Simulated assay, not measured.
Amino acid sequence: MKAIVTVVGKDQVGIIAGVCNRLAQYNINVLDISQTVMEGYFTMMMVVDLTLCDTAFEALGRSMKDYGESRDLSIRVQREDIFNAMHKL
């Protein structure tokens, strides 16, 4: 199963490394990543593979959200199919 991870917040050192390390703790592989900084604000979108993750999806989402809040970031994890359905024209 794939998921979409979005990260938004004020730019700071180590955001990508921190998020990727946190995902690696759950055996989650990053398949694709796009990030940018606009006027001091960092945004990142990642496609990740949850195949080897044995943590419940809701618990994973909560953990990533809590991690983000500890760094003053907004981190959201969505199932790929739901993300695609929400963004269909």
Rank of each mutant, 00 (worst) to 15 (best):
K2C: 01
K2R: 14
V5R: 03
V5N: 00
V5F: 02
V5P: 02
T6V: 00
V7T: 11
V7E: 05
V8D: 06
D11Q: 09
V13H: 12
V13M: 13
I15S: 05
I15M: 02
I15Q: 01
I16A: 13
G18W: 01
V19R: 05
Y26C: 02
Y26D: 06
Y26V: 05
Y26T: 01
N27H: 15
I28G: 01
N29G: 04
N29R: 10
V30P: 00
L31S: 06
L31W: 04
D32N: 15
D32R: 09
S34D: 10
T36Y: 01
V37Y: 09
V37R: 12
V37M: 12
V37F: 08
M38R: 12
E39T: 12
E39K: 13
F42V: 07
T43H: 00
M44D: 04
M44T: 07
M44H: 03
M46H: 04
M46P: 00
D49C: 05
L50M: 13
L50H: 02
L52Y: 09
D54V: 08
D54S: 12
T55W: 00
T55H: 01
A56M: 09
A56T: 05
E58V: 14
A59N: 15
L60D: 07
G61V: 04
G61P: 02
R62E: 15
M64N: 01
K65G: 00
K65C: 08
Y67I: 04
G68P: 01
S70E: 13
R71M: 14
D72F: 13
D72Y: 13
S74C: 10
I75F: 03
I75A: 03
R76W: 01
V77T: 11
V77D: 04
R79Q: 14
D81L: 10
N84H: 10
M86T: 10
L89V: 12
